[in-house]
Structure formats: structure tokens, C-alpha cells
Write a protein that binds this DNA or RNA. Structure first.
Length: 365
RNA sequence: GUGGGCGUAGCUCAGUUGGUUAGAGCAUCAGGUUGUGGCCCUGAAGGCCGCGGGUUCAAUUCCCGUCGCUCACC
């Protein structure tokens, strides 16, 4: 019995909609998971998560093990209770920091220099599992090697080999039965390598499967075939998670290929710095043309920010550096994306996904 | 009133021993941002160098006048 059960309720071509059930609750797919790296979605509170209808939030092992420490989080009840969040949680393993922080990587693990105080820290596949068991999220991720793109073939091959070897060790080290463990597929933009990595990961019978190492420098035209090659090898009865992708075009393309869940920092990062996602594309809220606008950010958006606040007000807040500006636009961008996911679920159920996909790509493609 | 200092981009200021299209930071505007190091990167626009006159081949620069701001003294 897998800690995560997954039921596909509807499909439209290769796109699918369903419900994943963990020991503590469910999430509907296709699902967008906002990123709360250090135990908080930046500028938001747990009550905000609830109002937004968020079902699962991502936290980061690397950051939480350094501050406040996984043992502290464990003593305070685990990531969910620690952060006052009653919904579901997933912890990333630290594999992405292999990409973003360029630590020393060897066959046995990764050595990081802390970005907080310069101290040295070691993360192995077993250590990542143990740390994530302490953090206590509903889903934990196996430690992987995420190389940048483009990378030389030997670099991609080595990343796949290490990720595969670490997956075996993570699987063996994982003991908590109330917590799921997802394996991660690597392979860059090489379709054959992607397929191989997916097959080798699948053999280990993880609770779910992630596709990592994409949206790290390649174009969407390079990403799609690599993604498709991996997805073809994955079992249909397990959740499929495309890591780090959250641009609207990427979301609809990936859902169309059969991806079930996503995380992305884009929504909150863009929001913090003044860019809104709208049905007409990206909007620079700070632009002078918004100075005297009484319009909402997006007339089609049902969120509390669009219901209440004008572009002129939001622009003003950004102009004077009020933190509320970042908060409100983060709320909007998350609500807008969650609404898009909900529309995709409905469209799949109605057999109209192709129509929605075309509509989104006409703006965001 | 007398004497000194300062007037250069929206703001704060460099610069010029007189010599190509006068610079920076911030701000503005336009892009970028994808398992977050509380950001960062790229580009653009923007100047009668206070105003008037003089000297000079050439003045933002030197001289005279004038206006404004400022400090000190009376």
C-alpha cells in the first residue's frame, strides 16, 4: 500500500484529472503547489493559504535543515503544524540547490557551504530521507543531481547515474509509512536518456515520480520532447510532478502531456517585484500607464485583490515601496494560477482541454 | 548691506589645467526572471552645464554682469 493513492477521475487525450490521497488528506490534480522555501510562502500567512484554497505547499530541506534545523521543526510538530498550516506539505530534497548553489558533488552525496553562516553541511541520499522524516511533510523527494542546461553529455550521464544510485539508497532508507517518497527523473533534453532515467526510477516503485532538471535554461521546444519521453515510461496510477515549472504555457503543455502537479517560485517572485499574471499576459504593475487606472489587475480574475484594489493603488504601493504591494501581488498571482489549474481540471472533465490549451497558448505561447 | 561658497539629468553629485557625441548612483520607462541566497540582470530615455554678455579658432570650464540658494559677518 502506497502512502499516496492516486485516482484518475477524467482524462482528455493524455491530459488527466484526479485526486491524490495522502495519510493526512487529499489534493486535486492537476495541482499547483506554491513554494514556501523556509516554512512560509513569502509575504503570506497560513490563513492566506486557506483563503486562497491552496491544498499543498512546498518547503525546502536545505533551507530548513540550516534554519531552524530539522530537529527543531520536528519538536514543534513537523512542517505543517510548525507553520500553522493544516493542509498538505511536500519537501524538496535539496537537489535543486545542487543546481543553484554549485556545491561539491561526489558519488556519495553533496557538500554545501551554508549560505547563512558559511559552515559546511553534508547531504547524502540517506541523510536527506532522515532529515525529511524529521521535517515531516506528507511527501518527501529523493535527493537528486540537477545539472544546468545546456550541459555536456557526460555531465548529464553522470547526473542520471548518481540520481539513480541515490534513488536506490533513498528507497532503502525510507521508513515512515505516513509519508510518501517520490523519485526524480533526470536526463537533460536527451530523450533517450530521459526515457532510461524514467525506467530506472520506475523500477524502484516510488509513491510518485517527478521530472527534474527542466526549465533550467532550455527553451520550451527543447523541454517538451524530453518531458514527453519521460512521461511515456511512468506508470499511469502514480502522480507525476514536473518540478519548477509554473509559467502558464508550460503548465498547459505539461498537463496536456499527463503531468499532475507542479511547483514554481515564479508566481511569488514576479508578484514581489511588480509583475502580475493576467488573462492578457504579464503586466508591469509599476508602469506609469497604470497610475490613474481604476481597473483591477485582471477583470476575469476572481481573487480578493482584483475584487477590491485598483491598478492605480497597487502601482502606488510599489512606487513607494510598501511591502503590502508585494503581498497583494503575490496573492493575486497565486490565486490566478490556482484558478487556471481549476479551469484545467474542469476542461479535462468536460473533454474541452484542447480549447483551454489553445486559449492559454495564444496569450502565453 | 559686506564678504565667501554653490547653481551640471527628476534627485544627490562627479567632471572640465578651455578641445570629439558632458558622466555616475538613485529614480523613471521597457524587457528578463521557472524544485527562491528577501533579489538580480539587460537595455532605453532623460542636459540651451541658472540667465545675459565678453575673451577665444573653440566656453559647462576663463572674465564681467545678473538672478536664485546658502553660510559668515555687520
Amino acid at each position: 500500500m502506497h502512502p499516496v493513492s492516486f485516482v484518475v477521475d477524467a482524462s482528455d487525450g493524455t491530459a488527466r484529472a484526479g485526486i491524490a490521497t495522502t495519510s493526512r488528506g487529499t489534493y486535486r490534480t492537476p495541482c499547483f503547489m506554491p513554494v514556501g522555501t523556509r516554512g512560509a510562502i513569502k509575504y503570506l500567512s497560513a490563513t492566506d493559504y486557506e483563503r486562497l484554497g491552496i491544498e499543498i505547499v512546498l518547503g525546502n530541506t536545505y533551507h530548513l535543515m540550516l534554519r531552524p534545523g530539522a530537529d527543531v521543526v520536528a519538536r514543534l510538530g513537523g512542517l505543517g503544524p510548525f507553520s500553522g498550516w493544516r493542509g498538505l506539505t511536500l519537501t524538496d530534497s535539496g537537489g535543486f540547490q545542487v543546481f543553484s548553489l554549485s556545491p561539491t558533488v561526489d558519488d556519495d552525496g553533496v557538500t554545501f557551504k551554508s549560505t547563512y553562516d558559511g559552515s559546511m553541511h553534508r547531504l547524502t541520499p540517506e541523510g536527506a530521507v532522515a532529515t525529511q522524516e524529521l521535517l515531516g511533510a506528507d511527501i518527501q523527494m529523493a535527493l537528486d543531481v540537477c545539472p544546468p542546461l545546456p550541459s555536456e553529455p557526460d555531465v548529464l550521464r553522470l547526473a542520471v547515474e548518481r540520481t539513480a544510485g541515490w534513488a536506490v539508497r533513498a528507497r532503502a532508507a525510507h521508513h515512515r509509512t505516513d509519508q510518501s517518497l517520490f523519485g526524480i527523473v533526470q536526463g537533460g533534453t536527451d530523450t533517450a536518456l530521459r526515457a532510461e532515467s524514467a525506467r530506472r526510477t520506475t523500477e524502484l516503485e516510488f509513491d510518485g515520480y517527478a521530472i527534474g532538471g527542466l526549465s533550467v535554461g532550455e527553451s520550451r521546444d527543447e523541454m517538451i520532447p524530453a518531458l514527453a519521453a519521460a512521461l511515456e515510461q511512468l506508470p499511469p496510477d502514480r502522480p507525476r510532478y514536473l518540478m519548477g515549472v509554473g509559467d502558464p504555457a508550460g503548465l498547459v503543455e505539461a498537463v496536456g502531456l499527463g503531468v499532475d502537479q507542479f511547483d514554481c517560485v515564479m508566481q511569488t517572485r514576479l508578484g514581489r517585484h511588480g509583475t502580475a499574471l493576467t488573462s492578457a499576459g504579464k503586466m508591469q504593475v509599476k508602469a506609469v500607464r497604470n497610475a490613474e487606472s481604476d481597473e483591477p489587475i485582471d477583470v476575469t480574475c476572481p481573487c480578493e485583490v482584483c475584487e477590491r484594489h485598483s491598478r492605480g493603488y497597487l502601482r502606488h504601493l510599489f512606487q513607494v515601496g510598501e511591502p503590502t504591494a508585494s503581498r497583494l501581488l503575490s496573492v493575486h498571482n497565486l490565486a490566478w494560477t490556482l484558478h487556471l489549474m481549476a479551469r484545467m481540471r474542469v476542461a479535462i472533465a468536460q473533454g474541452a482541454f484542447g480549447c483551454l490549451r489553445s486559449e492559454v497558448l495564444s496569450v502565453w505561447g
